[in-house]
């Protein structure tokens, strides 16, 4: 169950939209923010709110890179693996983070704190190599700068997050 206030906000967002469906991505993102990932329960709630079948919501959820249909850690670190970043050491950055965290790209640390995901171009190519955590973009990264950011993440749970403890 989602809190009444969140439900009200989502209903309002849907009412403001040109059609219910136009708000689908926003609704999925908000629910993901609440649960940490788009759980089956969240998917069901989205379908009721939007007046769509759960299959129609699933079809959207599985399409987008930034909607997680599987559990993720408290922080999701998206490391760009596209061409401009690759040309100036994006590969080395991803490998060094994987080694530091002791996980393969695509997985989550055992303490449930950090998920490491390679991703497509972040639109920040002039500042390559880049990564994104939550809504924050980081550029001109070295493996050392990356390591510093990781240790800061471990110390600092996301501010104002309503997330439950990690599900992994």
């Amino acid at each position: 169950m989602i809190p009444a206030l969140l439900k009200e906000n989502l209903a309002q967002r849907i009412a403001d939209a040109a059609t219910n469906r136009e708000a689908a991505v926003d609704v999925m993102k908000e629910l993901q923010h609440h649960y940490g990932w788009l759980t089956d329960e969240a998917l069901g709630e989205a379908s009721v709110l939007l007046g769509l079948s759960s299959l129609q919501v699933e079809e959207l959820a599985t399409f987008y890179e930034m909607i997680y249909r599987r559990p993720v850690g408290r922080h999701v670190v998206h490391v760009c693996d596209s061409i401009s970043c690759w040309a100036v050491g994006g590969d080395t950055l991803l490998k060094s983070l994987a080694q530091l965290l002791g996980i393969a790209p695509g997985s989550t640390t055992a303490d449930g704190m950090i998920t490491l995901l390679p991703c497509s171009c972040l639109g920040n190519c002039g500042e390559a190599p880049c990564m994104m955590i939550g809504e924050k973009q980081y550029g001109r990264l070295t493996p050392e700068a990356g390591a510093q950011i990781m240790s800061a993440l471990r110390d600092d749970p996301p501010a104002g997050s309503t997330k439950k403890p990690p599900l992994v």
């Binding site: 171009c121 639109g123 190519c125 002039g126």
Partner: peptide, 12 residues
């Protein structure tokens, strides 16, 4: 949408 790698002009 600007997701073509190497492109970031609209953001700037």
């Amino acid at each position: 949408d600007e997701m073509e790698p190497g492109t970031y002009k609209d953001r700037v």
